[in-house]
Design a protein around this nucleic acid. Structure first.
Lengths: 229, 229, 229, 229
DNA sequence: GATGAATGAGCATTCATTCAT
DNA sequence: AATGAATGAATGCTCATTCAT
């Protein structure tokens, strides 16, 4: 009943954020119940509503908060001027480090966009577009200076981001590779991608001429329920 | 009551699969209700159970069916022998074509793994690992023959798959680029990545020596509910 | 689980309506929980939603259904032509009989208007206005023919309806007076009211001149919590 | 935290009473939440409990307080002796004036009786019966002196109170009629009702003999959910 | 006198699922 | 193969109330 001795708003709030992050990353927003969340935190369900107005707002706060942090950290990392290559390296190292440091937040920022209501989604998508643009600017600049040879910088932007962001789907702390190791390997791949396209395109074109078209079955055969009538 | 004139199993089954695919891709498995699904198909909720034993089995059937198709189609595409480069090109073209042709199925195969119950998950993960291995083998082979210069073929496997699979998150039919165009651009990037690593690693190493460590904020400041308390 | 042998939609629906009517009349719409309603009917809460879309719709259906009945029955009762006095007698007898026959429905039609959402409220208020107009027309007609002497037919309409409708707040079947008795007594009062105004107005005016103004305290003194500080 | 500069008990108490009155009159006791009440007053929910022990006590205080005022004011209004007719006129003028002056309090005294717990209800019902008796005594006295011709003074008491109390359901300040106007019109109707019954009864009896019985449908036909199967 | 954080029960509503018809 | 009525548990959320500060 009533306020528990020693209870304190900020502590509870932090616990809610942490538990929510973990539950959403594990089960997904729709599958996480506020009962679970409250239990994880060790409070009653109703008490959650001292910290957010509803479940959707909670999700939005988590995602928006993370995006703000991400932007601020990226801006700090890119502060120092340099060549496009230097900047791309910087970007990659930053992105890898960030994904390794906060994989859950990063993950839900991708996976739970669909759970955002239209207005909230619009706000987040705008922030994401800004982030993409920062990478896109580096690539455009590098192509202009001749440092990079890219057929399509928009595609390259999306490809690099997908490649780097994939890290958070399989990275586990204490794995085979350290953050440093990951940074080096991924920087290598990103720079190769950015530099080498001319040569690669040649290959691609060559192949394109000779290759038979790839067959993609449009429909599966057989009943939905395998093994049943 | 009872069977409506003209109703027919196979037609209904196909409608259920199609509607389910679309609903799960849009809202997610947990957020899709069987009410919605039945309404979309134009039948009563109870009738769905003539086509699957429960919601989980429905999801598993969709994912498993797709994985079977994917493997069969990939094997067909890779039948012709060739250099590692030729095979990587083939793989990339296939993967892009498949993702463009069936983006929803591909998408839920990634996004709804967490909604699978343990046994079902294990089965799907095994199939996915097979798929990854097929790409991994190409990369390993190419490195052995000296065609590719890759620091870490496992990382490269994951990176390439992430890059290519990202397509289904933004691809819309009728966009700026045709399937052909996408295939060429992505083949270019993948080959560049596979070929160019040595040179790139040099850059990475150079940067690595000088660069200040990237700062990643571990915690956000400020209250959960922005603008309040 | 599932359908109980012998269960049947129409029977359940009727039971829900009857139980709902009684619960709303007794406790009020806001204070009636759907748990209570389901328990009264002997089904699970969720099953209620086979019969209405939500609580508000249930209330609206009850009220609207009753209003439709009321209008149909009044029209039938007033079919026979006659003098204004005959019609007013008919109206009164009908209204009393109806209130005595279905006191709960009548009661919630007055008391739960405030629980209706704006659109539903508008629909009901329109029907009520029609009903009032039917009485108003009788009074206007009677004043035009000289049968009635009324200072203000609108006020008389409201006064007569309030007087008659009050019956459902205290009427209990099996009380001192039969329906017939009530009809006669209330017809007498209504006709007296309608006929006698001239004479009465004279009194009113006389009193009005001499009477001291009535003092109405605008505010109570003393603390809210009697007996506490 | 703690006490805000300038806050003061009596001012807050008055604000709570006023806001509560308005909220209960508008939405009903059960539908008014203490959240709403606190928000209206501009304090936190918990602070309300400095002014009442619980929600029920708050309602009871409002109703009881109003009934005390009502009695005191009526007694003052009826102090002067006079004929039954003079006293009935006085009563009517007073009742109308009071309802016009404090429509919300009057309204909840009728509409929220059902929300009172048994003991509180008993106390209020007793006060109300006293009030009715004061009118009943006037009518009985008038019938004894031959001033009034009433078939049933108990019914007349209830009818007159219902008629007059109905005012608070439609009265809006600034309407077509002033308080004076309303007093005159309603006094006219009440006196007509009290005087005229003999003549009216004759009519009623006449009608009663000839009239066909009024048909009251006991049950509505058709489904609960209009327009659906 | 007021706050803010908490409680625990209760709310209307939705869920996947069942099964007699 | 389909329906419609049912279940029982769960959902997100609100409620009146408490009390250390």
């Amino acid at each position: 009943m009533a306020r528990i001795a020693g209870s304190s708003g900020p502590r509870t709030e932090e616990a809610i954020r942490r538990a929510g992050l973990s539950l959403i990353a594990t089960h997904g927003y729709a599958a996480m119940s506020l009962r679970q969340l409250a239990a994880e935190v060790g409070i009653q369900q109703g008490s959650l509503y001292n910290y957010f107005r509803n479940k959707q707002e909670f999700l939005f706060d988590l995602i928006r908060g993370h995006m703000l942090d991400l932007h601020a950290a990226l801006d700090a990392a890119l502060l120092a001027e340099g060549s496009a290559e230097a900047r791309l390296t910087r970007f990659t190292e930053f992105h890898v480090a960030y994904h390794v440091a906060r994989p859950q937040e990063v993950f839900i920022c991708y996976s739970e966009l669909r759970s955002l209501e239209p207005d909230n989604l619009a706000a987040v998508v705008a922030m994401r577009r800004d982030y993409e643009r920062k990478l896109g600017d580096i690539l455009d600049h590098g192509r202009a200076t001749g440092e990079f040879r890219l057929a399509d910088t928009r595609m390259a932007t999306l490809a690099i981001l997908a490649m780097l962001s994939g890290i958070c789907t399989w990275y586990k702390p204490g794995g085979r590779l350290s953050t440093d190791g990951l940074q080096q390997i991924f920087t290598g791949m990103v720079l190769a991608l950015a530099h080498g396209e001319t040569q690669a395109l040649a290959h691609g074109a060559m192949q394109g001429e000779v290759a038979e078209p790839v067959a993609v079955p449009v429909r599966r055969r057989g009943p939905l329920r395998a093994g049943v009538g």
